[in-house]
């Protein structure tokens, strides 16, 4: 009886999964298609996913627009890589401390962090700007990286992950004579690889797509990040330049998709905790 039921469930399941996949993919396919269409065709309301009139002019425009393009790209890579590396260590350490260690003030700090996440970003903009100006950090990558060197949401996420972390791992390490710090860096962090890669992708994306901070903190075109640089060709009046916007979006998405595919290998095949491996 059970065997007869399964295929139907499977068919339904796959149908739902495929439909959902289609809804997820459609906007991207449209964006990619639009990036190869001339402006007139995009705004003409043509919904087809294949351009009638194929053109690479949008990409040529963007790449030809500024000699600084590769520089912006490099800047984004530097800020994102450095920022992500620092974040991984600081967030994981803080999350671990809040989940696994006992010390005075633990819950006060935990709820303090939680409360800070809840403050709307819009109101921190001007105070943060003034602080960075007083620290003499405006128009530098430090201004982008330092205030974002930790991410309270990710500290919180790591804490929740470590709540489920098996105690016996640390105990075994202690028996092997490893100190607390060694245990963390040699045993705990490698075991937390799936959660850390998840975090890494989110943090990297945060830096890569960050728009408000570069916009307010950077003023020299040589220091622009990609998101900011690509904005500079958007005119003030006259609506959205869909052709350039879509090409620009595709350019910003591609590196991150590649990164995701690389990380995806580690992503979900972390070490099993139930002794199967």
């Amino acid at each position: 009886m059970k065997k007869n039921k399964l295929p139907i469930i499977h068919i339904i399941m796959y149908t739902v999964l495929i439909i959902y996949a289609f809804f997820t993919l459609y906007p991207f396919l449209w964006a990619v298609a639009a990036s190869f269409k001339p402006f007139r065709e995009i705004v003409g309301g043509d919904l087809s996913l294949l351009p009638n009139e194929f053109t690479t002019a949008n990409y040529e425009y963007i790449f030809g627009r500024s000699s600084l393009f590769s520089r912006w790209f490099l800047n984004s890579v530097i800020v994102s890589v450095v920022g992500t590396t620092i974040n991984i260590f600081l967030n994981t350490m803080a999350g671990y401390a809040l989940a696994r260690l006992n010390f005075p003030g633990k819950y006060r700090i935990y709820y303090g962090f939680l409360a800070l996440i809840m403050v709307p970003a819009q109101v921190l903009l001007i105070p943060n700007y003034l602080i960075l100006r007083n620290l003499g950090m405006l128009d530098s990558f430090t201004a982008l990286i330092l205030p974002a060197a930790i991410n309270l949401g990710n500290i919180f996420m790591m804490r929740q992950f470590f709540m489920n972390f098996p105690v016996d791992v640390e105990e075994a390490a202690a028996i092997d004579g490893l100190g607390r710090f060694q245990t963390f860096f040699r045993i705990v962090m490698p075991l937390a690889k799936p959660s850390i890669s998840t975090q890494a992708i989110f943090v990297f994306m945060g830096f890569w797509n960050e728009f408000m901070k570069p916009m307010l903190y950077l003023s020299s075109p040589q220091k622009f990040t990609l998101t900011l640089g690509l904005q500079t060709f958007q005119g003030q009046d006259g609506g959205v330049r869909w052709d350039y916007t879509m090409a620009a979006s595709v350019i910003t998405i591609i590196p991150i998709v590649i990164l995701y595919i690389i990380f995806n290998k580690y992503f979900l095949q972390g070490v099993r905790m139930d002794g199967e491996k």
Binding site: L90, A94, N102, I155
Partner: peptide, 12 residues
């Protein structure tokens, strides 16, 4: 343990 906790939390 306290020392470790505060060291880990200090940058944050």
């Amino acid at each position: 343990e306290w020392f470790q906790a505060y060291t880990f939390l200090a940058p944050a």
